[in-house]
Design a protein around this nucleic acid. Structure first.
Length: 130
DNA sequence: TCCTTGACTCAGA
DNA sequence: CTCTGAGCCAAGG
């Protein structure tokens, strides 16, 4: 098991359900999603820490239409590039939601991260600072 | 059968 | 900041 968890069906469903709750204009990471879900039965913590994020990525690669897949980025706050050009559409969708990318193609997770403080976001939206 | 390829992350150098 | 290795497996060419 590495690219896929023991019970792929169940794990994927959990990933999709969770991502469904990420609000418009916000992003989360593969690692954060994995952490919130926690290791499936029979998978020890160490292994899950190592592969959970990848399993989430695999799940996202197969998500249903209704899932806001564009709101999941990597731990650096960058869009993971893959073959097929999906990353280009992802960037467009995120910008359309009001998410800004800095000069190095990175999203400020303190600002747009799922769990970031509202205060920070408001101030930034107001004067463009931070 | 062998080799490549995955929507990841973190620690080290 | 960049680049590697480790973690370690299934599917397809």
């Amino acid at each position: 098991m590495s690219t896929e968890p023991p019970n792929t069906e169940s794990f994927n469903r959990q990933v999709w359900d969770l991502v469904m709750t990420v609000p418009r204009g916000r992003v989360t990471t593969y690692g954060e999603v994995a952490k919130k879900i926690g290791p499936p039965e029979g998978v020890d913590e160490a292994e899950y820490r190592a592969f959970g994020p990848r399993w989430v990525g695999t799940a996202m690669a197969r998500c249903p239409e209704a899932v806001p897949w564009q709101r999941v980025v990597n731990s650096e706050g960058r869009i993971s590039i893959r073959k097929g050009g999906g990353h280009l559409k992802q960037r467009a969708l995120l910008e359309a939601e009001g998410i800004r990318f800095d000069d190095s193609e990175r999203i400020d997770l303190d600002l747009y991260g799922w769990g970031s403080p509202p205060v920070l976001r408001q101030r930034s939206l107001f004067d463009g600072s931070i």
